[in-house]
Design a protein around this nucleic acid. Sequence first.
DNA 1: GGCAGGTTACTCGGATAGCGATTGTCCGAGTTGATCTGG
DNA 2: CCAGATCAACTCGGACAATCGCTATCCGAGTAACCTGCC
Lengths: 162, 162
Amino acid sequence: MKLNEGIEWAIHCCSILAALPPDIALSAKRLAEFFDLPSHYLAKHLQSLSQAGLVSSSKGPGGGYSLAKPADQISVLNIVQAIDGRAAHFQCTEIRQRGPSGVEPPCYKNPCGIARTMWRAEKAWRAELAAVSLADIGQLGLNEIPQTQMDKSLHWFESVIK
Amino acid sequence: MKLNEGIEWAIHCCSILAALPPDIALSAKRLAEFFDLPSHYLAKHLQSLSQAGLVSSSKGPGGGYSLAKPADQISVLNIVQAIDGRAAHFQCTEIRQRGPSGVEPPCYKNPCGIARTMWRAEKAWRAELAAVSLADIGQLGLNEIPQTQMDKSLHWFESVIK
DNA sequence: GGCAGGTTACTCGGATAGCGATTGTCCGAGTTGATCTGG
DNA sequence: CCAGATCAACTCGGACAATCGCTATCCGAGTAACCTGCC
């Protein structure tokens, strides 16, 4: 199992948007340029974020994407689920009901213990991701980004936005 | 992202092996028959369990698979990792280092906050799975399996093992 | 009757195709901002 | 100089290929039990 690569891109892009003034939009092309990513493919993932209501989009010159909500109201889980879907990773196919020892479906009152175990683990995973907001990610970044990169980033923003 | 379907099969098969007397081996064919699964494909996953040292295999007539360790020393995480590999689900490609604002790799002392967040969530996921052993799964089963199924299963075992 | 050798049937293990989801790419619809023209 | 219409460039959004990993299958290597013939 491998997590969708676009998840990394989406979280990074959202954290950039969170650092910008709220009324500034950044196009998919600019975001791709900032991270040196294939712009068309990144656009596909940004569309998912837009459909999930995490970012709002505007067309035409000066348009692009901006956060639809304050950064502290968007969790990492929101972004992950927007890109990767909300389906459970483990899917129980009820093989206990099959084969020579299976009995009628109504006899099974609960999901089987194996599925419950897997789902409990997924729940813990989601809880960890839900506990971290974009604002938290931004704060981490402010504390740890090399000063040189911060300067280059600010310079890049100014050259692009004007 | 979807978890390998074989994980469900492998855990069910291991829980069956855990319920058997330790000196009894069950072949891939029999296990597939019990759950009505494609035997050849199930065999592939059982090989993974064997390579991981969770089950021991014996060839020839009367051979098959049996648990290599006591059921309380095999966690669900062991099985999941045997089938799905031990690689992290989230792979950080360090896109923060790329693009016009990137600086030299030595400037980045820690993994980026996004990767740390994702990995912390995976750690919580693994911890939940590591906390459940095959013995626990078996206990859950004993408490919840319909009596009719238990009878049919015992009957099937007797007809197969003799 | 007991034993040695050969045979047979059964099992695992790795090597080999098929398919679906993720990855990657493109063009059309729509909007905004600037430009140009006329008053 | 200002207002309005036109135009052009830019952006998103959905539709269309290519690649990789999961799914599925097979056959060969090895082993244990069994059977047969001989002592």
